[in-house]
Amino acid sequence: MINYWYYTGDTTYNEVTMQALVHQIGANKDFMPENQTKTLGNDDQAFWGMTALTAAETNFAPPPAGVPGWLALAQGVFNEQTRRWDELTCGGGLRWQKFITNIGYNYKNTISNGCFFNIAARLALYTGNQTYADWAIKAYDWVESTNMINDEYKVFDGGHVEDNCTKQDGTRWTYNAGVFMMGAAAMYNFVSLLIFNCGQR
C-alpha cells in the first residue's frame, strides 16, 4: 500500500497503513509484537522490516511522536538478525524460526536469508554505509554456497541443518527470487554510486 500511494499519489489507504505498522512495532520496537512472538520466524519479522524500509525510502509520513523513525525500525530488525547469524551449522545463515522449541528451528530457509540480504543491500544504498553491503555480500555468498541459489540462478526454498543445508527439495517460490532480485538491484545501484563518486574525485 505504500508503493500504491507512492506511485499513484492516492492517499486513501495511508492512514490505515500507518495504524497497522505502528500497532505491530511491539514493545521492543522491533516488529516482534507479543501476540506473534511464539511463532515468530526471521522471515516474518523481516517482512515488516522491509515495509518500514520502504516507508523510509519513499518518505512516507513519519510515525507519531515517541515511535522510532522508519529507518531506525528497519535498522533495528537488521541489527537483531545479524546477532542470529549462525555459523555453528552450515557455515552460516539464519535459521527460519527464532526459538529452539519451534518446528522449523532446524531449517535455514531461503526467504529468511533473502529478506536479510534485501534489507542489508537497501540499507547500504540508503545510508551509504559499507558495513551493510558487507553483510549483503556475506548473506548472498552463503546462500549460493548451500545451493539455495544454484548456478542456473534457480532459487530453492531452503535446507535442513542435518544435511548441512545443501539438500534442496526443489520447490521454487516466486517470493524467494523476488527478494533477491530487489536486493541485487539495490547492490547494483550501491556499487554504481561508489564508482560514480570515485570518478568525481
Binding site: M1, Y4, T8, L21, H23, F47, T51
Partner: peptide, 27 residues
C-alpha cells in the same frame, strides 16, 4: 481497522507476515 480487531492483522487464513507484505507490496 474494524472496531475490536487488531491493526496489522489479516483474518484467517492469512498469516501475519502477509499483512506486513501487503502494506508495501500490493501494487
Amino acid at each position: 481497522n474494524h472496531t475490536g480487531d487488531v491493526p496489522g492483522n489479516l483474518p484467517d487464513p492469512y498469516y501475519w507476515w502477509e499483512c506486513g507484505a501487503m502494506l508495501v507490496y500490493c501494487l
